[in-house]
């Protein structure tokens, strides 16, 4: 890696788009052990608190005519329940709390990560990979428990010509094992990319402090770009949570009804 350090010394633009993803201990500067309280802990705890506030405190009234917060909670409930029922079938409702947990965690982690100075837990491959592997294992185990070795019929495309079937089966098996990879990298990559882009544009914003001439053009443009990308990121935060959840439902449908 290059070791120039003169950029910051000269008072030039400072680019650290990836620094926001660094895991740091909350107290002190020691090494990050397994149980160290880090910014990961802090933002995951905030995620839990936000979910608790929306779904437990918000519905504490149990009102027949809901308050605003309660109707939002009911909206989320209905949204995910309908998704599970429509995509994966009625017998997938056993997994509804599990899918709801994933959706709410990703949604709130994404949204909280959009706050300035926040740490986005879902931008880390370690976090999303654990969730994706959990989904993968659940799907595989449920498939084998429910259908035994008949679950392998998922890879045997019976509608294709016989000669093509082994080739297709190979492709299907590969794509089955690529699922958790794409599932996790999609979420982490989207989060990482969006936040990094915001950071890069943010680094252009103080241009006016360095050179008034160029700054008059660059600073407003970069602020406009930050706002635009930020709005896009709000959308992406929701869509990625939605996509992660609906793909979980799709995979679950494969396990429950593996007819190809």
């Amino acid at each position: 890696m290059a070791t120039e350090t003169h950029g910051a010394d000269q008072g030039g633009l400072v680019f650290h788009p990836m620094d926001q993803f660094i895991v740091k201990p909350l107290f002190g500067d020691g090494p990050v052990g397994l149980f160290t309280l880090t910014n990961v802990t802090l933002w995951m705890a905030l995620t839990v608190l936000a979910i608790f506030a929306l779904l437990v405190l918000g519905t504490s009234g149990r009102a027949t005519i809901p308050s605003r917060v309660q109707s939002v909670a009911e909206l989320v409930y209905d949204f995910i329940r309908k998704m599970v029922e429509d995509v994966a079938g009625k017998d997938a409702l056993v997994f509804f709390p599990y899918i709801m947990t994933l959706f709410l965690f990703i949604l709130f982690a994404n949204f909280l990560g959009l706050l300035p100075m926040a740490f986005t837990t879902t931008s880390h491959i370690a976090v999303t990979a654990v969730m994706a592997v959990m989904v993968f294992l659940t799907v595989t185990i449920v498939g084998f428990v429910k259908h035994g070795f008949g679950f392998l019929g998922l890879f045997w495309v019976s509608s294709a010509p016989l000669a093509l079937r082994p080739v297709l089966a190979l492709i299907e098996v590969i794509s089955y094992f690529v699922r958790p990879v794409s599932h996790s990298i999609r979420l982490a990559g989207n989060m990482m990319a969006g936040h990094a882009v915001v950071k890069v544009f943010a680094a252009f914003a103080p241009m006016i402090l360095i050179s008034t001439g160029i700054g008059l053009v660059v600073t407003p443009l970069s602020i406009l770009a930050i706002s635009t990308i930020y709005a896009l990121e709000v959308l992406v935060a929701f869509i990625q949570a939605y996509v992660f959840t609906i793909l979980t439902c799709v995979y679950l449908k494969d396990a429950l009804h593996p007819s190809h």
Partner: peptide
């Protein structure tokens, strides 16, 4: 619309892979 989002997600995942490759090369 659900199918639309699934399709977009699949298409987008491959772009994210290339972004990841870029990041890996950079860092």
């Amino acid at each position: 619309t659900a199918t639309l989002f699934i399709g977009i997600a699949f298409a987008e995942a491959l772009g994210i892979f290339s972004f990841l490759v870029a990041l890996l090369l950079m860092f």
